[in-house]
Amino acid sequence: MASLHSAVLDLRRLELMANGDSTIHRLDARAKVLVTLVFIICVVSYTRYELAALFPFFIFPVVMVSLTGIPPLFIIGKLALLCPFVLAMGLFNPVFDREILVQLGTLGISGGWISFASILTRSILTVGTAFILVGTTGFTAVCRALERLGMPQVFAVQLLFLYRYIFVLTEESGRASRARELRSCGKKGLGIRSFGSMTGHLLLRTWQRAERVHMAMLARGFSGEFRTHHVSRFGWAEITFITVWSGLLIFMRIFNIPHLLGALLAGSIS
């Protein structure tokens, strides 16, 4: 449970990074949300066996990280946490899909391995970019941007509450599990039997806690709308940011850059 707790603390660290100051931080949240959406759509729209064409897309997260000063190791660490899930998802591809697609000398690489690598690359790209978005913008501002882009307010507020609830839930579950560990003296305690009532208690306790947090929000004039004090305007910087990045991303999506480079190289040699 300690690792879960520290993971949540790290989430908060990501949120704090959003208070930084850089050209990217200062951009209107809507611009960043739009470009991230274009990025994700471009990356996920490839066929399952596409691998080489995905690599040029790393330019976006790399440039963003270098411009914003977000520690790259931090993002990589977060992505490493995600790996088990991705591995579980793609694990059976190499088993079921054994058709050889690429022949490297005597080594034949099956379609399963390629699609597996493709899933992994895509996950790293999309999730990494989402982390960078939150780290440069802040979750509240992202929700507000989505709302200003036309998402119904109810969904935006739900999303924010869900995000808040993650913290409430992990804090409470951390406490409950610590109390259990301390009284089970390093053994299994009551084992699986105690988990039923623990989960029930957890639900009720987080519920009460969430109610108190809600009460605190109501007491301070919360009326269903989240406001941020970051004043942002949609100006030339935002328009340039969107045009340049969307243009580049869509170009990379339409033209397979590694392929073009390869053809160019092959052409010049022959």
């Binding site: 802040g138 009326s223 004090h229």
Partner: peptide, 17 residues
């Protein structure tokens, strides 16, 4: 009572509303 990412944000929550 404190639910925003920074102290400033938290104190600003009420006045913003």
């Amino acid at each position: 009572q404190l639910f925003m990412p920074t102290v400033f944000d938290d104190v600003a929550f009420g006045p913003l509303n």
